[in-house]
């Protein structure tokens, strides 16, 4: 089951960007522009794993909305343009799990979302792309229901690509996240793992090489 996110943001441009990002990496979401409308809808539907709340909202501000969200045990990440320490601390003391300050980049938000979901035990760790399924609970990978054996680094690269499905990940990101060190001059090892993943899982078309950037696991 996909993780379901409550997104409350009144700026349409930002809400569109975040929503689109959530959609393409495989999250389900419900979005609201008005704090009160979001609070009201929670009464009927509160099956969310995480809430992304703006603070300056019409109808009801993010601080007040937090109370309604916490009532259902949903962890909260604030997205705010208020950079002053006071509102950060207030947000965290009120029970927000984390916050990001605008302008933020999507990678930062996704990493924080994943950490909060993991910490609260809500992270869905089964990822799918096409007929490939990665079960991160058991560290197993299936292709059309058939188990496929992967080397640890191959598994790490596939997991990272799955987590950022439909987004381009750079070789540097892969090196630092999977290999665990900053790239020191040789990125061929990444290319080697990618080609063995393509071969073993039949992902030749799905894993796209993005010129000058890196790779993208496509599933749309």
């Amino acid at each position: 089951m996909q993780n379901r996110i409550l997104l409350v943001e009144d700026d349409q441009a930002i809400a569109d960007a975040v929503a689109l990002n959530l959609k393409i990496v495989g999250y389900d979401y419900a979005r609201f522009e008005d704090g009160r409308a979001a609070a009201d809808s929670l009464i009927e539907d509160h099956a969310f794993d995480l809430a992304l709340l703006d603070i300056m909202l019409p109808g009801m501000d993010g601080f007040e909305l937090l109370g309604h969200v916490k009532k259902y045990g949903i962890p909260v990440i604030y997205m705010t343009a208020k950079a002053d320490a006071a509102s950060e601390i207030k947000g965290l003391l009120d029970g927000a799990e984390d916050y990001v300050i605008k302008p933020f980049d999507m990678m930062t938000l996704m990493v924080r979302m994943e950490k909060v979901l993991l910490r609260t035990g809500r992270l869905n760790r089964i990822y799918r792309a096409g007929d490939v399924e990665l079960d991160d609970y058991r560290h197993e990978v299936y292709k059309a229901g058939e188990r496929v054996e992967l080397r640890p680094l191959e598994y790490g690269v596939l997991l990272y690509l799955m987590k950022h499905k439909n987004l381009t990940v750079t070789r540097e990101q892969l090196l630092s996240e999977v290999w665990g060190f900053e790239y020191m001059g040789e990125s061929r090892s990444v290319d080697v793992k990618i080609s063995s993943l393509r071969r073993k899982l039949g992902l030749g078309d799905a894993i796209k090489t993005v010129q000058k950037l890196g790779y993208r696991l496509e599933d749309r």
Partner: peptide, 24 residues
Amino acid sequence: SHEFKTPLAAVRLHGDLLQSAKLS
């Protein structure tokens, strides 16, 4: 600076999307 943050956030997020995501 607060007023600039929201449009800047929009530019950055959509820029990221355009650069790295597979979009219709």
